[in-house]
Simulated scan of single mutants.
Amino acid sequence: MKKFGILVVVFIVCVAFLSSYANADVETEKISLNGSTSMEKMVNALKEGLEDKYPELLIEPQFTGSSAGIEAVLNGTTDIGNSSRYLKDSEKEKGLIENIVAIDAIVIVTDTQNKVNNLTTQQLIDIYTGKIRNWKEVGGEDLPIVVVGREAGSGTRSAFEEILHIEEQCQYANEVNETGPIIAKVQSIHGAIGYVSLDVIDETVKPLAIDGIQASEETIQNGQYSLQRPFVMATKDTIEKQNEEVQKLFQYIQSEDGQKIIRAVGLVPTSNKMSY
């Protein structure tokens, strides 16, 4: 009986050794992404789905801002640079390809107690450039407007200011480095106004209509909602010239599962705008 017990133990040890050896022999394939904090929710959702489909893939995202992501892909420290704005001509001239994977709406939000439901585009411009400073000037209560925005270099800020043609003109009371703190500031300050990505809107803030149009998939697709911007996964050269792992990521985004994920996080997919 003792001999049998020893044989069983030896067998178990051998199986465990062979199993660990076999697992060690499987090489992990990594894909690195860096860039826009606004794209974090979408990228993490795609990461989960992609790693389920391809267990050998390891997706390594960082969220340091659009400009930092673009610089990272240019200098070769990341495979994909995530940008929540269109690429500049100067960036394209350096060999970057603008792969638009989704369209996002920039939504204007206030605290839930604010009585204003709609702003015209001109009123929004005037608020952010300091010409309108009190909510009573746009049909609200007699309350100072606290203008909140992103930091310089943010893709969201760049897109917002470019759409409204107010680059370098905004007068911010508060500038924050990520999307989350915009929500927190607006939620906690009565009279605050801010801009965030559609996919992060929750019940703690109040989204405003612009020119009578609320942001939705329908109004983004038909172009009625004016404050919209691309979510770009920039690559150095075309997708077909990327390594096999990166190509798998873009193929997954274009798949039915990938498109469902993009819609599930509140974005509009645009798979036909990738550069093969």
Rank of each mutant, 00 (worst) to 15 (best):
K2H: 11
K3T: 07
F4P: 03
G5Q: 07
I6F: 13
I6M: 10
V8F: 11
V9A: 15
L18H: 10
S19D: 04
S20G: 04
K30M: 06
L33E: 07
S36P: 10
T37E: 08
E40H: 03
K41A: 06
K41C: 03
L46T: 14
K47G: 04
G49H: 08
K53N: 12
P55M: 13
L58D: 13
E60C: 01
T64D: 10
G65H: 04
A68C: 00
I70T: 15
D79W: 05
S84I: 08
G95M: 01
N99F: 09
A102F: 04
I103E: 11
I103A: 02
I103H: 01
I108S: 03
T110R: 03
N114L: 03
N114E: 12
N114I: 13
V116M: 02
N118W: 05
L124D: 11
I127W: 09
Y128V: 09
T129H: 02
E137P: 06
E141G: 11
V146K: 14
V147H: 09
R150D: 12
A152C: 03
G155K: 10
A159T: 13
E162P: 11
E162K: 15
E167F: 02
E168T: 10
T179S: 11
I189W: 07
V200L: 00
D202S: 07
P207G: 10
A209N: 07
Q214G: 05
S216H: 07
S216Q: 07
S216T: 14
N222T: 08
Y225R: 00
Y225F: 10
Q228I: 15
R229C: 06
R229F: 10
V232S: 03
A234C: 02
T235C: 03
T235F: 01
K241N: 15
Q242R: 09
K248Y: 01
G258W: 04
K260G: 05
R263W: 01
R263E: 06
G266W: 04
G266N: 09
V268S: 04
V268L: 09
T270P: 01
S271R: 04
